[in-house]
Design a protein around this nucleic acid. Structure first.
Length: 594
RNA sequence: GGUCGCGUAGCUCAGCUGGAUAGAGCAUCUGCCUUCUAAGCAGACGGUCGAAGGUUCGAAUCCUUCCGCGAUCACCA
């Protein structure tokens, strides 16, 4: 049990006894470094219940706690802040209670409480770019965090394999492709298909320009360019099940999937189950029909179906076209319901989708609530800001994108360059080096993206490479590697032990480390509640900074006292385990050496 | 125009449901490798927390107005 929960009870007891008042809650905070003490009780909020001078009240509570709580060995009061000094013994007991717990900080899975996390969900007509990277890293990490907080998690994505965008790539390939394949060109499938998407756009623009030159109104030209009309015709053929079209669609999608699979593997993300838009785009129509009967929706004269959300401060929103076909919203309603049918233990969902769709999800969740689904109160849109370049938005059609594969490759290369300069890995073979560089490069990239609050937009400057020093992934990996180095030496000299040891008078740095370790479980809970990997990243950074300071100031293996040496090794080991555990939640690996 | 989000040091970001003198990293400048990995440590420099009001014992945090940036307001997905 954490010190605060113990103190909470005792402070209430103190107030009850001293002032005959019941406190509903007590406010704690870690004592600031400039003051003596470990935990601070804020007296001000008590003034609503206890009348008097806050300093004096603090004084009296402090005396009570020192006399009645063994863990409290002293106190001081500054203004309305009661700073308590907590005994070394308390922190040592805490450490002994967790030091061999491999899953420290994690909560055991509650099986009845599953959640489905959707992320990635790319279009299948072009390669993944930096925006997808942020999406994937967030979705994956949040999934891991939710698991650590005791949820059962299904990771999923909906693959947008249908629609006019695919037809554009298909058409361009038919026209200009000469039968090219990933095999014949040596290109990754998604790259190949993406090239044709760009080729389509170029041809389209040329045609529009020509029409305009021939005197057509520019707006009309944009609608009437032959290649666009042909693409639309292709979509109709696809929907009608035309054999040749469907076959080409399958082939080209297949190429893209192979390309994506490679990218996902390199990125280190995965999925438990997949949904394809081509399977789900018709879902939801029945639900709309039922909702219409129930009066949730209403029909307009032209036959289109709408929902009126004006009383919720939103507008009217269409859920079915006048020709009876599904829109985006119809599909999402259907897919959500389908998912609960497929996985009945799912009681909530998380959608990792960019913030340009905030409105869509607000509406979707409201609709599902009005339809009366029990799980509709546990839906969350994990909304994140765009990743922009200094030149503005990334646009695939214009080629101003930071390609995911290229970026990961560059990061590994940077790691390799730095590593070669430092020259600490002379005895590693090429494969080991390659694996390590990838771990470090990816670690830098992932940390760089995940440490930022998801809501904020990221400005990514490809000219300035991602840092490897300071508050970065490699810094944390480096600290982990250092710890492993100590542990290897400790093992050789026989001081790597699990037994509890008596240590008197903790070093200030040891105590700080223990306090930081104590925060790990609540940090996971907080990160899960807020769907925020950034909290995990920042926690880990603080822990690592604390360890490096400790490492620099005290000698671990050079410590003369045997018990203390063993304790410091144990402490280092635990810090290493927590680093590894936290980084696993971020999807980042940790190296034995670097 | 309506709605939503963001605005903290030159740059990139922390700052939990309001709490003590607003914290890190990068950059710049000082020190520290014959002792556990210097991708490190210790320190200096750097802030009217976008602006103005308000609530409060106390506001970067909550409320209002305004300014700036972004997104969104399709029978596209």
């Amino acid at each position: 049990m954490g010190i605060e929960s113990i103190l909470e009870v005792k402070v209430k007891e103190a107030v009850a006894q001293l002032f005959k008042v019941e406190l509903p809650q007590v406010e704690f905070q870690p004592t600031r470094k400039d003051f003596e003490g470990d935990v601070t009780v804020v007296v001000f909020p008590m003034l609503r219940y206890v009348k008097g001078n806050p300093a004096k009240i603090g004084e009296e509570i402090g005396q009570f706690l020192t006399a009645n709580v063994p863990a409290v060995t002293g106190f001081n009061v500054i203004k309305g802040f009661l700073n308590l000094v907590i005994s070394d013994g308390f922190y040592l007991d805490f450490f002994n209670s967790i030091k061999t717990t491999a899953t420290y900080g994690h909560v055991a899975e509650k099986a009845d409480d599953a959640v489905m996390v959707e992320y990635s969900s790319p279009n299948t007509n072009k390669p993944l770019h930096l925006g997808h990277v942020r999406n994937n890293l967030l979705g994956y990490s949040v999934s891991e965090i939710l698991k650590a907080a005791g949820k059962k998690v299904y990771k999923t994505q909906i693959i947008n394999d249908r629609g006019i965008h695919i037809c554009k790539s298909m058409l361009a390939w038919k026209r200009f492709g000469n039968g090219e394949t990933p095999e014949s060109t040596g290109l990754k499938g998604d790259k190949l298909v993406g090239n044709y998407y760009v080729a389509f756009d170029k041809a389209y623009k040329d045609e529009v320009a020509q029409l305009v030159a021939e005197g057509t109104d520019p707006k009309q030209a944009e609608k009437e360019a032959p290649i666009l009309l042909e693409a639309q015709e292709m979509l109709q053929k696809w929907e009608a099940g035309d054999e040749e079209t469907v076959s080409l669609w399958k082939t080209m999608n297949g190429w893209v999937y192979e390309g994506f699979a490679e990218t996902y593997k390199n990125m280190g993300v995965d999925f438990d189950t997949l949904y394809y838009e081509s399977d789900t785009y018709l879902l939801g129509k029945d639900v709309v029909a039922q909702g219409l009967e129930k009066g949730v929706f209403f029909k307009k004269e032209d036959g289109s179906v709408w929902i009126d959300l004006t009383e919720n401060g939103l507008d009217e929103k269409i859920v079915l076209r006048s020709d009876g076909t599904a829109v985006y919203m119809t599909q999402d309603i259907g897919t959500a319901i389908q998912r609960v049918k497929d996985y009945p233990d799912v009681g909530g969902m998380v959608y990792t989708v960019g913030n340009e769709q905030d409105y869509h999800f607000k509406v979707l969740f409201l609709i599902l609530q009005k339809l009366g689904y029990s799980w509709s109160n546990n839906l969350h849109h994990l909304s994140y800001g765009m990743v922009d370049l200094p030149s503005g938005k990334m646009k695939s059609r214009e080629g101003t994108v930071v390609d995911a594969d290229d970026l990961m490759q560059e990061m590994s290369q940077t790691a390799a360059n730095i590593s070669a300069e430092l020259g600490k890995l002379e005895d590693y073979d090429e494969d080991q080096k390659e694996e390590l560089y990838q771990m470090i490069g990816l670690g830098a990239l992932k940390y760089y993206i995940l440490k930022v609050d998801p809501k904020k937009r990221i400005l990514f400057n490809p000219e300035e490479s991602v840092d490897f020093q300071g508050n970065t992934g490699p810094f944390i990996q480096y600290t982990y590697a250092r710890i492993q180095s100590i542990l290897r030496k400790a093992e050789e000299t026989g001081v790597l032990k699990d037994n509890d040891v008596e240590v008197e008078a903790l070093h200030a740095k040891e105590k700080e480390l223990l306090k930081q370790l104590q925060l790990y479980p609540e940090t996971i809970q907080l990160a899960a509640e807020n769907y925020s990997p950034a909290l995990i990243a920042n926690y880990t950074y603080d822990l690592v900074k604390e360890f490096n300071s400790f490492y620099q100031q005290v000698s671990i293996l050079g410590e003369a006292d045997e018990n203390r040496k063993i304790f410091r090794v144990q402490l280092s080991k635990k810090v290493g385990e927590v680093i590894a555990s936290a980084f696993r939640l971020l999807g980042i690996g940790v190296p034995e050496r670097m």
